[in-house]
């Protein structure tokens, strides 16, 4: 299939997909496309939703599917290796990796063969990129984890993962913004509120952000709250 591929997911929403494989380079194109559409906004544009490999454009009249399709096709063919530096925020997030909060620490140690200190080191020494927000309000999909830290999803999802839990699955890491069921392996907890329904833009992180985790002690974690 030739890429990029443009298809409707709704009468008023077109997705432009750059690949079916997740990579930094593909995501760079997604964010570049988002900036290009923002710069060349059109009458009827509602919102842009970036994902791992695609950007979805929501619109309403007077914009039509045919017109938006043409705009996407044209802008995509003009995408170049942009010389302008992608503007992104750098965000440091404190995480307490204490075993009392890292409920899946045992599973992760067994599966990866790493000790606790190595897990914390690998998780804090790398900068991660926010690929997209989804699954639930404010849930950031971040990557890419070093191969040594890769571990599959849990076979049986946990029913109650506490809000603020920092978890890993595959090449990804994420933070549960509110208490929810989930299949990722919890290795710590942040006191930072990732989603605040009272405070626009509600989500602490957004696609494109660069995140670095900073280990904090249990007393520090408690004093944050």
């Amino acid at each position: 299939m030739p890429y990029p591929r443009i298809y409707p997911i709704h009468d008023h929403a077109l997705t432009i997909e750059f690949s079916t494989l997740i990579s930094e380079e593909v995501h760079r194109k997604v964010m570049q496309m988002k900036r290009v559409i923002e710069k060349n906004s059109f009458d009827g544009l509602v919102e842009l939703v970036p994902a791992y490999t695609s950007l979805t454009v929501y619109f309403r009249p007077p914009a039509s599917q045919i017109e938006v399709h043409a705009i996407l096709q044209e802008q995509a063919s003009n995408l170049k290796e942009s010389d302008e530096e992608e503007v992104h925020r750098k965000i440091e997030i404190p995480v307490c990796y204490d075993p009392s909060l890292a409920v899946d620490l045992e599973i992760v140690m067994q599966s990866t063969g790493l000790d606790h200190d190595s897990i914390v080191r690998l998780h804090t020494e790398n900068e991660f990129k926010v690929y997209m927000i989804g699954f639930m309000p404010g849930f950031a999909y971040m990557g890419t984890l070093p191969p040594a830290l890769e571990i599959g999803r849990k076979k049986t999802p946990s029913l109650n993962i506490p809000s603020g839990s920092v978890a890993i699955a595959g090449k990804q890491t994420g933070i549960y913004p509110s208490t929810s069921p989930g299949g990722w392996n919890v290795i710590g907890r942040t006191p930072v509120r990732m989603f605040d329904p009272e405070q626009p833009p509600y989500s602490y992180l957004q696609a494109g952000d660069r995140v670095r985790f900073k280990a904090i002690s249990l007393p520090d974690y408690e004093s944050y709250l």
Binding site: V46, E47, L48, V49, P50, T56, Y58, I133, G134, F135, M136, P137, G138, F139, P201, Y202, S203, Q206, A207
Partner: peptide, 10 residues
Amino acid sequence: RWGLQAFGIP
């Protein structure tokens, strides 16, 4: 509510 899907808000 429109305009917030990029933050995961339905």
